[in-house]
Design a protein around this nucleic acid. Structure first.
Length: 466
RNA sequence: GGCCCCGUCGUCUAGUGGACUAGGACGCAGCCCUCUCAAGGCUGAGAUCGCGGGUUCGAAUCCCGCCGGGGCUACCA
């Protein structure tokens, strides 16, 4: 994956603050960071905020927070500055205006006075006549004299546009099929197709690594770069899209799993999510499934990236996340569990960790297992035989030290004397103490609760006063 | 509609003309372990490689056609 002139590698991601941070942004950021780190390059964060309608400044902070949570930090950005500041497109308007003016004066672009309604009509007509739509160039040929509102349109020169994609190889597009498109909107803001290549060029981005939805945008952008006389990026890489379970592109509206923050809330470890994302669309060609970040930097290469979109799968993510959780040492797991168990003190969490470790697909699941520690579950209705066993348990637990091994020993003695299986004794206790059929091993289940509370819950169902 | 990308078990994938009776992982089933649930161990089911034609002694791998999915085709990004 090393490139010849490594010192000049500059990559970027350019999210738009139009909603919560998207899973695809994390994925794209990961590949950019991996490439940058492997080549000693620079990773730039640029905010593409040219959509005045949908833009919300507060989402910018969400993007920062999500990316930082994942450990994907950038070298240059709006909040950090850098040699190419500003890094927010809304603050670079002069640059686009200057370039648009140049294109205009060189006859490579022209003013278009058509209204959205007129354009819509053109488009509908083409559709009705089943012919591919291209802007009619009405305003190039015969511009109206009585209008003031205009957009700036690029005069598509025609011919072939070729470029190198690190994943798919040499790409060729026929620009004759592309209609003159808009560079500057009538509100004075640039379109994405214009701002993006101008920024990439002026920020000296060497490799453009982004989602596959931009593959067919590339010729548009390259034509602009050429028309402006800028240097083209060395290469592009269009990553396969992350698809939802239903096979369609992950959308913010339809698919909640596209929300990056959801993973933090549910207790997915950032390093596990990264690992999963790396495996969605890429594999090292070996059977290795878990990778440290440094391993990914070393192993990742674009020539092993999948060409087809990959479906997001909770099951595999859960497994990987579980693997990472199990690999954590007790103190670390306890530390990460803290925000998910606000009802418990640190010492209790730490005591619970050994019992939780193999039982968590995510950190939030710990609350389901330990809920009985801060709630008072209603006493279950038990068979007389079960009640009898609880009475017996009360007797053996009464004077026992309150720790898992002692409890275990006492209870096993009782089980042996009962002549029945352990479950006959343990399940009634579990039900009485937690109100649930599922809980950590019975010795832990009991020991995590203060002894007086545990005993009172047993007494309660045994029908004898404490 | 036009252009572009893509198509191997349910899912993520290995595979670049013979070692493929198509491998691994997740999930699933069974067994073992076991106080429940997990974790762990073992075993297993699961893909006529989208379909149809070629080329070849031989194709998942090369060629053509078709079908299917996705992306772009916006004064969204």
């Amino acid at each position: 994956m090393a490139v010849p002139d490594a010192s000049r590698v500059r990559v970027r991601i350019a999210p738009s603050p139009t909603g919560f941070a998207h899973l695809g942004t994390a994925s794209t950021a990961l590949y950019n960071v991996l490439f940058a780190r492997a080549n000693g390059g620079t990773f730039v964060l640029r905010i593409d905020d040219t959509d005045v309608e949908r833009n919300r400044p507060e989402y910018e902070a969400v993007i920062y927070e999500s990316l930082r949570w994942l450990g994907l930090d950038w070298d240059e950005g709006p909040d950090k500055g850098g040699p190419d500041a500003p890094y927010r497109q809304s603050e670079r308007l002069d640059l686009y205006k200057k370039d648009a003016a140049r294109l205009l004066s060189e006859g490579k672009a022209y003013r278009c006075y058509c209204t959205p309604e007129e354009l819509d009509a053109e488009r509908k007509l083409a559709q009705a006549e089943k012919r591919p739509y291209k802007y009619s160039r009405r305003c190039l040929i015969d511009p109206p004299k009585d209008r003031t509102d205009f957009t700036v349109r690029f005069k598509v020169p025609g011919g072939e546009v070729r470029f190198m994609d690190m994943i798919r190889g040499e790409m060729t597009f026929d620009s004759g099929l592309i209609g003159d498109f808009i560079l500057m909107k009538s509100d004075g803001y640039p379109t994405y197709q214009f701002a993006s290549p101008v920024d990439d060029a002026t920020m000296r981005i060497s490799h453009v690594i982004r989602g596959e939805e931009h593959l067919s945008n590339t010729p548009y952008q390259l034509m602009i770069v050429d028309a402006l006389g800028y240097d083209r990026p060395v290469a592009y890489a269009h990553m396969p899209l992350i698809l939802a379970k239903d096979g369609t592109k992950l959308s913010k509206r339809k698919h909640p799993e596209s929300n990056l923050m959801l993973y933090r809330e549910k207790g997915y470890l950032p390093e596990a999510l990264m690992n999963y994302l790396a495996l969605l669309g890429w594999n090292p060609g070996t059977s290795q499934e878990t990778f440290s970040f440094d391993e990914l930097v070393r192993l990742f290469s674009f020539d092993r990236v999948q060409h087809a979109g990959a479906r997001f799968d909770w099951e595999k993510l859960n497994w990987i996340n579980g693997e990472y959780i199990r690999a954590l040492d007790d103190e670390e797991l306890g530390r990460r569990l803290k925000p998910f168990l606000p009802q418990l003190d640190e010492a209790t969490i730490l005591r619970a960790v050994p019992a939780l470790k193999t039982r968590l697909p995510n950190l939030a699941a710990a609350a389901d297992l330990l809920e009985y520690l801060w709630t008072n579950p209603p006493p279950p209705a038990l068979e007389p035989e079960a009640v009898e066993r609880i009475r017996a348990a009360i007797e053996v637990l009464k004077d026992v030290p309150w720790d898992p091994p002692s409890i275990h020993e006492a209870l096993m003695g009782l089980v042996e004397r009962s002549g029945a299986g352990p479950n006959k004794t343990f399940m009634p206790i579990r039900l009485a103490v937690t109100g649930k059929k599922i809980s950590p091993p019975i010795d832990y289940t009991l020991a995590l609760l203060p002894k007086d509370i545990a005993m009172s819950r047993l007494h309660r169902v045994a029908g004898v006063p404490a």
